[in-house]
Amino acid sequence: MNDGVPVDVDVALVGGGGAASLVLAALDRHGLAGLRVAVVDPVRRRGQDRTWAFWGRPGGELDGVLSASWGHVEVVTPARRRVLDLAPLRYAMVRSAPVYARAAEAERRLGAVRFDAAVAGLDDDGTRVVVRGGDGAPLVRASWVLDSRPRPPARPGRTSWLQHFRGWWVASEVALFDPRRAVLMDFRTPQPGRGVSFGYVLPVSDRFALVEYTEFSPARLTGDGYDRALRGYLGRLGWDPAALVVREVEDGVIPMTDAPFPRRPSPRVVRLGTAGGATRPSTGFTFSAMLRQAEQVAAALAGGRAPVPAPAYPRRHLWMDAVALRALDTGRVGGPEFFDRLFDRNPASRVLRFLDGDTGVVEDLAVMRSSPLAPMTSAVLGDAVGRLWGRLRRPG
Rank of each mutant, 00 (worst) to 15 (best):
V5H: 14
D8C: 14
D8L: 15
G16Q: 03
G18S: 15
A19H: 01
S21D: 08
S21I: 07
V23G: 00
L24W: 02
A26M: 02
L27N: 03
R29P: 05
G31E: 09
G31T: 09
G34Q: 13
A38E: 01
P42D: 08
R45L: 07
G47N: 09
Q48M: 13
R57V: 14
G59D: 06
G60L: 04
E61N: 11
E61S: 13
L66W: 03
A68H: 09
G71D: 14
E74M: 11
V76E: 00
R81C: 00
V83W: 00
L84N: 04
A97S: 12
A101Y: 13
A104T: 04
R109W: 06
R109P: 07
L110S: 09
G111P: 06
A112I: 02
A118T: 14
V119P: 03
A120D: 15
D124R: 07
G126D: 12
R128A: 14
R128Y: 12
V129N: 01
L139G: 03
V140C: 02
V140K: 00
W144I: 04
L146W: 03
R149D: 03
R149W: 05
P152C: 08
L162Q: 15
V170K: 01
S172L: 13
P179N: 09
P179T: 04
R180P: 10
A182R: 00
A182S: 08
V183E: 09
T189V: 12
L202W: 06
L202I: 10
D206H: 10
D206I: 05
R207P: 07
F208A: 15
A209I: 05
L210F: 05
Y213T: 06
R220A: 13
L221Q: 08
D224R: 15
G225T: 11
D227P: 03
D227S: 10
P241Y: 11
V245C: 13
V253L: 11
P265A: 08
V269P: 00
G273H: 00
T274D: 06
A278S: 13
T279P: 03
R280C: 04
G284W: 02
L291F: 11
A294P: 00
A294K: 03
Q296K: 05
A298V: 04
A302P: 05
A306D: 15
P311T: 11
A312D: 02
P314K: 01
R316H: 14
W319L: 12
M320G: 11
D321L: 10
L325W: 07
A327F: 03
L328H: 03
D329P: 01
D329S: 07
G331F: 08
F338V: 04
R341H: 04
D344S: 15
R350G: 10
V351P: 01
L352C: 08
L355K: 00
L355T: 01
V361Q: 14
L365R: 06
L365P: 02
S371N: 11
T377K: 07
S378M: 12
A379L: 08
V380D: 07
L381K: 11
D383L: 12
V385M: 15
G386N: 09
P395F: 10
